[in-house]
Design a protein around this nucleic acid. Structure first.
Lengths: 119, 119
DNA sequence: TATGGTACTAACAAATTTGTAAGTAATGGC
DNA sequence: GCCATTACTTACAAATTTGTTAGTACCATA
């Protein structure tokens, strides 16, 4: 999010773990506070920045920007900028991200079940 | 991990998101740095604290303890203490955690694929 | 009596993530 | 010229997670 220190133990550990464990790697990619929420909203199709914002009560513009940037960097979201004023930008899921959908729906079911169980 | 402030915006946001989104909820449960690694090791069966430690190069005892405690609290791991000296404690996956296995194996495949794609 | 083995805990420090508040750029319409 | 609109950025602060180091308890064995 902010810049990370290349050689902190923290960073080294993360690198090392995600190199060795594809599962941890995968979860890291979707692990930001607002990321899954964003991805879910995009499941139905393209959305503009402002639309996503409205769909997710509680995100600040800063957080939304940060999370979108990471999703983009990680190839989960495509960002399209239109040369217009006022600016228009939209976001959509990439192919790889779409491959996640069936998995995340199972995970979501597991979550629902677990949530009930834990009450 | 450490105690969280009940009324920070951060905490409130997390609560609010995980209440509304089962997927985010699920990912939160397995989102600690070492959690998935631990769960994977336990896939084969019970392990003692020290065994897990040996299987995961890089974890400190503190981190291992913390993560195991959370997994226990969240009902993903069962902890058994034997009244022996020196102490003996073992950990195993709960039923709910086992239900995650097929999902995480898919997620792991996705991770592997994504990792290659991103190079 | 001293030592070793096991599974921790405590106090602290560093790194990272998240949130707050305010500002920016460009242009069409008034 | 002035304002509204949109998608951001910047500087800062707070919260949270992760890591470091040094200890603890217990008893069997040497």
């Amino acid at each position: 999010m902010a810049i990370r220190k290349e050689n902190s133990t923290n960073m080294q550990n993360e690198k090392c773990i995600t190199e060795g464990c594809d599962l941890t790697y995968a979860v890291c990619k979707i692990g930001g506070r607002w990321k899954l929420l964003i991805l879910c909203k995009l499941e139905e199709g393209k959305l503009r920045f402002g639309e996503i914002k409205k769909l997710i009560p509680g995100v600040t513009e800063r957080m939304l920007t940060l999370q979108l940037r990471e999703l983009e960097k990680d190839g989960l979201v495509n960002r399209t900028v239109y040369a217009e004023v006022p600016p228009r930008v939209d976001y959509e899921l990439t192919v790889v991200a779409k491959e996640l959908i069936p998995i995340w729906s199972q995970l979501s079911n597991w979550g629902k079940k677990h949530k009930i169980l834990m009450k």
